[in-house]
Amino acid sequence: MSSQLLTVSPSPHIHQQQQTVSNLMFGVVIALTPAFIVSLVVFGVGAIKVTLAGVFFCMLFEYLISKYLLKKEANLADGSAIITGILLAFNLPANLPIWIIAIGSLVAIGLGKMAFGGLGNNPFNPAMVGRVFLLISFPVPMTSWPVAMESQWRLADGVTGATPMEIFKEGLEAGLPISEIMGQLPSYFTLFLGGQGGCIGEVSGLALFLGFLYMLYKKIITWHIPVSLLATVFALTGLFWMINPAQYADPVFQVITGGLLLGAFYMATDYVTSPMTSKGMLIYGVGIGVFTVVIRLWGSYPEGISFAILIMNGFVPLINKYVKPRRFGEVKPA
């Protein structure tokens, strides 16, 4: 007693041990592993190259910016830069040149995150900022996808092909009937397992879904955003499909193809840029769903989830201000 001073602090005096910031972040990394393995099988070396480059550049820029521009201790241990890197890479084609990835990382970390003061302060999802920047600046390399299962072991200049979404949209523009376009595509089951071309991360719906279950189990995320988002997309596209099946694809196709699952499970659920209350999360998910469908059906891009997430990110402060949790003992208006 006399040798050692007692510590005094306000309550609570205990703290849960399971979840720390880095635990949560690495939980997401673990959840992304199955999708990475599938992309490895499908795209081979390219997937490793792009993912490593994404992670490396994101960490590098985070370090450099916080050390030399913000002049504070760089905090790489929290793992947020790693996640931004992985998610950015997962949204890129496996044959993208490294210098483009570097630019994307700089924009994602610098503009998307550090410009606002670093982790916790950025209104927009950094990986999405990076990806959209690249998509607008380098449309050709960003949409030249290596054909699945064919170019695994070549480092560059593989055969390129189109994503199912692109095939579909181009087919429609060419005036082909729906049934014929569908005939060019693999079966839904193959698509879900990992047969579709496209970005590294969006290949296999199943792998993404496994990761989602893991995150739910570990209580890293809640169900609200993914479920409301997917349900909205399913319902809206289903509605148009029922009105005119010759013009619009069926909802199952819409949900399992493209980056929708990746976006719904990993991008939209980003802590910093999503609403704080469960009610708010539902609104946010529905909003993303609506924008995604609008862009997919009537926009000039075949894919809409990235834009939809960024648009809804802009609404988050508003949602947080007006959507409050259900207060205990709230007097119900009679």
Partner: peptide, 21 residues
């Protein structure tokens, strides 16, 4: 020093907790 204060770094918080360290 008679104790170690470990709450939020604010005099107001510390003062509402106890007399001081």
């Amino acid at each position: 020093k008679t104790s170690i204060y470990e709450g939020a770094p604010s005099c107001a918080v510390a003062a509402s907790l106890y007399g001081g360290d």
